[in-house]
Amino acid sequence: MRSALIVGTGAIGTSIALALRAGGVVTHLRDTDATAARTAEEVGAGITAAPAGPVDVAVLAVPPAAVATALAALQREGIARCYTDVAGVKALPEREIEALGCDPTSVAGGHPLVGNGRPGPLAAKPDLFDGCPWALVPTERTADRSLNIVLELVSLCGATPVLLDAERHDRAMALDSHVPHLASVLLGGRLRDAEASALRLAGQELRDVTRGASASPELWAELLSANAAAVADLLEVFAEDARGTAAVLRTPGVPAATALLDLPRRGAQGQTVVPGKYGVPAASLAAVEVVVGDDPKEYAQLLGDVAKTGVSIDDIAIERSAHRGTARISLTVPVAGEPVLVSKLRLRNWPVRGG
């Protein structure tokens, strides 16, 4: 791949552009928001000048409802040899692309699975996709040359391709993302009328579960509408589970107690199959907690000492306790590295919980 056009210079589009630029690809940028495109250019994501001829690939980093119309316009322009997108749903764009009579041979749909961070080109990172899954959703009419170019794009971004069809992708998103977000939203909505005394008792578990409720309502309304059938099917299954649990709770006796014990067991069993970050099995990771002073200098000192241990860190979480002036830093590491990290940090007099 020698050249690309990124249409849409938000955080995702600009991150793709930065990754391609790092791989030596000449990257052109286009956005209806001229300021966003110029900002992406200024951070080194590419150039806003139009390409002199067709590029190898055009990436449509636009909302799901805009994919088909944007694709049709780009194909009329003859701007690229193949096209892909990053929309979080696939069946709707696929149907609309067919309805508009677009050339399907040059299209291979895509969806990088990364967390929702800050929006805009200034939030972009060239390593955003490192080790992340990237769904590729070609149709039966997608040409091999088109799929191969998009596979090369995914590789240049450092992601892991996962090939599947549109319906399977959207069902997976309902389970992995859309219904969990709705659960966060529904619980968050219940908090509006909660008593002040109840909210004063709120702990980390409630904050974790409702964190997603603060995401863009407009974005999520579009995603849920576009994947309505798959989300509704799964919600109905969950509703049946909830009603069954409520019935058990209202039935006293030993059978009810046994059923209530089985419920968290099944949940725990299901949770164990969820992979950790970068596809690493969650069971192969361990958490090491260190309580430090709530001071950036102490954070930096701890991370410096962690680096000296040579143990790789998969993830870091910080929970502050402002009234105590402390912070609890949780370091997620490979299981094999846990005893090494604990031992070496204790030698440096850090108060470690783990091992």
Rank of each mutant, 00 (worst) to 15 (best):
Arg2Phe: 08
Ser3Tyr: 14
Ile6Tyr: 06
Ile6Asn: 05
Gly8His: 09
Ile12Gln: 01
Gly13Asp: 01
Ile16Met: 03
Leu18Ala: 04
Ala22Leu: 06
Val25Glu: 11
Val25Gly: 06
Val26Glu: 15
Thr27Asn: 03
Asp33Lys: 05
Arg38Met: 14
Thr39Phe: 02
Thr39Arg: 13
Ala40His: 03
Val43Phe: 07
Pro51Trp: 15
Ala52Gln: 13
Gly53Pro: 03
Pro54Asp: 09
Pro54Ile: 03
Val55Gly: 06
Ala58Ser: 10
Ala65Asn: 12
Ala73Gly: 07
Ala73Tyr: 09
Leu74Phe: 06
Cys82Val: 03
Tyr83Met: 05
Val86Lys: 05
Ala87Lys: 01
Lys90Met: 01
Leu92Asn: 02
Pro93Gln: 15
Glu98Lys: 12
Gly101Ser: 10
Cys102Leu: 01
Thr105Gly: 08
Ala108Gln: 03
Pro112Ile: 04
Pro119Asp: 09
Ala124Glu: 01
Leu128Cys: 05
Phe129Gly: 00
Asp130Ile: 11
Trp134Pro: 08
Ala135Met: 08
Val137Asp: 01
Asp144Glu: 15
Arg145Trp: 15
Val150Gln: 06
Val150Cys: 06
Leu151Ser: 11
Glu152Val: 04
Val154Phe: 04
Val154Arg: 01
Ser155Ala: 14
Gly158Cys: 11
Leu163Trp: 07
Asp170Leu: 02
Ala174Asn: 05
Leu175His: 03
Asp176Arg: 11
His178Glu: 04
Arg192Asp: 07
Ser197Asn: 09
Ala198Val: 15
Asp208Tyr: 10
Ser225Trp: 08
Asn227Val: 05
Asn227Gly: 09
Ala232Val: 07
Glu236Leu: 13
Ala246Ile: 03
Ala246Glu: 11
Val248Thr: 12
Leu249Lys: 03
Arg250Gly: 09
Pro255Tyr: 02
Ala257Tyr: 12
Gln269Asn: 11
Gly270His: 02
Gly270Met: 06
Gln271Leu: 04
Thr272Lys: 10
Val273Ser: 02
Val273Pro: 00
Gly276Asp: 05
Lys277Gln: 00
Leu285Trp: 11
Ala286His: 10
Gly293Thr: 05
Tyr299Trp: 08
Ala300Tyr: 02
Leu302Glu: 02
Asp305Gln: 11
Val311Phe: 09
Asp315Ser: 12
Ile316Pro: 02
Ala317Met: 08
Glu319Val: 12
Arg320Gly: 07
Ser321Leu: 15
Arg324Gln: 15
Thr326Gln: 07
Ser330Leu: 14
Glu338Arg: 11
Ser343Cys: 09
Pro351Ser: 12
Gly354Thr: 13
Gly354Asp: 12
